[in-house]
Design a protein around this nucleic acid. Structure first.
Lengths: 352, 352
DNA sequence: CTGAAAGCGCTTACAG
DNA sequence: CTGAAAGCGCTTACAG
């Protein structure tokens, strides 16, 4: 009753029969065509075409060295940074003849993901979402599959590509200090992630360099959920002496924060300046105009994919060199940051 | 020199040896535990734990009926609608014990994707990006794997879940007409996609009902690329009699459009109203406030995943019933749309 | 309830 | 350059 649905899958045996050769030869035509006599090769190719034969990847992975598949383990798509990098990586890999299996960190522990990845025998792994001290680092590093960490580093190092987040944070903080801000609040996800840890470090250093004290109640590391961010923003801005600028650990968070500020009737940057990290696409939108520091025209994801593929090919040959890239950050000054206004200053001074 | 990297993968044979039973029994413990004697089952489970055994999925798919894997073939993540639905689907499927392999339409023709999906033997397929007349429809419909189309339909029907886009477009158009707009431009991606085709149909019908003519030069179906959208927006708004409102085929496009309008120095909605479809997350942002029609609190992707899993289970049993859902659209009126202003009206009337 | 055997579709030494 | 054979790790009738 199922009709065509029941049709048998064409196997390399069928191709061999039609081409009048052995299954081994069909396999060779697919994997090392130059090792097969041209005439025979041609006949096999014709049989493949005639039968619309597609090799069964599951069977192939069971036995082969190469799968032409890379695994991408990505942070949540709710952060546009990951949506953008996933998009770029999949596209880049495809052009190089690789397919990408995307896993999301929400899909379970990295341990489970590694188990899956191993059983499917991918050729390489790209990880954008490992925590600074994740215990699974070792398992990945020694699993025998080339791995590259990008965006977030692990404390053990390994092959990674990330932005120089310390410098990035210093640049951003410097920018706010130059605009006259002295009361700067800091909102971020937790520091168990290298990017956020480094950004905080850079912020702290820049403030210290400038001799500007950081009030403890201006600094918040929180679960990056919309409602928590909004509540915190309200709380901060309703103080008697609200901060004149907000540094957010990443743009996605900054944009939620802006939403909260606008809903309070505050103007950006007249009442408060806002700045973030990553320079996601939306930050450049005319209605958002978020000042941000990121690595423009140097997509980390794509670079990571490029390096991974190089590593996969090198693997065959000589010894490995460790790949460690630090992308230089670039500051994009937009309208969300502006000079401290006289009223703000006056209000503050009046109270001090 | 590779150390642990070279360690042999633990197989079910190893587990069997340790537990003192056959490989078949190990397999049964994994697949139909109730068919194994409790004592023996316990010993196998312990061996699995001790060896940290993880079944090899590639081998399993080669032979098994079930893979606990579903394939999602999604539109580009550059459209936030797809990022949101992918996120939800992966999460929902995971909770139901299924993993999701995500393919993006950019990864090649749907034919190639189907070949891959078939060779990995997924249990079900979710497709959000098929064109109205895509020739691969048949291949999917008859491949023997349960499929559900969501968001976009194929003209042949099949199992689908989509918004009632005709009604959605009528509601949106009605809203603009009620605000007094008579010169409404329509910007959309090409109509080879059911959602866009239906939205246009609904718009046309609502305009006709209201007796408002649609000027041909106000209607544009274009490649939804940022630069093309911007150029078109500029062209439209620089006319002697620019439209007073813009209907965009989807929110992502509308947001790019707003970017262009703002960069021209136009105010929304004072100078021009903008409206879209999908109600993506950003549309609700205070800085965007895009009036949109979508299916709130009724995530299509999640419903599709739910229906697919039900279908996969039903498959085993009796005959199939076709699944066809039309989600009711909801109109979210926000600040991007407002009444035609007197100056606009006057300007237009003066010229007529 | 359990095991031995066959087989899923492929690739890779091993002989020729 | 080519084929027969073994095997990747699993599951599923088939006997017991």
């Amino acid at each position: 009753m199922q009709g065509k649905g029941e049709r048998k899958i064409v196997s390399s045996k069928d191709v061999a029969r039609l081409a009048g050769c052995s299954q081994s030869t069909v396999s060779r035509v697919l994997n090392r065509p130059e090792s097969v006599h041209p005439d025979k090769r041609e006949r096999v190719l014709q049989a493949i075409e005639a039968l619309q034969y597609k090799p069964n990847m599951a069977a192939r992975s069971l036995v082969a060295k190469q799968t032409y598949t890379i695994a991408l383990i990505s942070g949540t798509l709710r952060n546009d940074f990951f949506a953008e990098s996933t998009d770029r990586i999949v596209e880049y890999a495809r052009k190089q003849g690789y397919r990408t299996i995307v896993y999301f960190e929400s899909e379970g522990s990295l341990g489970d993901i590694l188990a899956q990845v191993r059983s499917y025998k991918v050729d390489g792994i790209l990880i954008s979402c490992m925590k600074l001290e994740d215990p699974h680092y070792e398992a990945f590093a020694t699993c025998g599959i080339p791995c590259i960490w990008f965006n977030r580093r692990h404390k053990r190092g390994g092959n990674y590509i990330s932005m120089d987040n310390i410098t990035a944070a210093s640049m951003l903080t410097r920018h706010l200090l130059d605009l006259g801000h002295r009361s700067i609040a800091y909102l971020s996800g937790h520091r168990d992630i290298s990017t956020l840890d480094e950004r905080w470090t850079g912020f702290e250093a820049a403030m210290q360099d400038a001799g500007v004290p950081i009030a403890e109640d201006q600094v918040h590391f929180l679960d990056p959920e919309d409602s928590a961010i909004q509540k915190l923003t309200w709380k901060l801005m309703q103080r008697l002496t609200p901060p004149t600028a907000l540094v957010c650990g990443h743009d996605e968070l900054a944009i939620v924060c802006m939403d909260a500020l606008l809903s309070m009737g505050l103007r950006i940057p007249e009442d408060v300046s806002v700045a973030g990290f990553d320079d996601i696409r939306m930050s450049g939108h005319q209605a958002i105009q978020l000042t941000s520091v990121g690595q423009h025209r140097f997509d980390m994801g794509e670079v990571a994919a490029e390096q991974l593929i190089a590593l996969m090919h090198a693997e065959a040959g000589k010894e490995q060199s460790v790949i460690q890239f630090r992308c230089k950050p670039e500051l994009f000054v937009r309208k969300s940051t502006g000079p401290v206004r006289t009223e703000q200053e006056k209000a503050r001074n009046g109270r001090i």
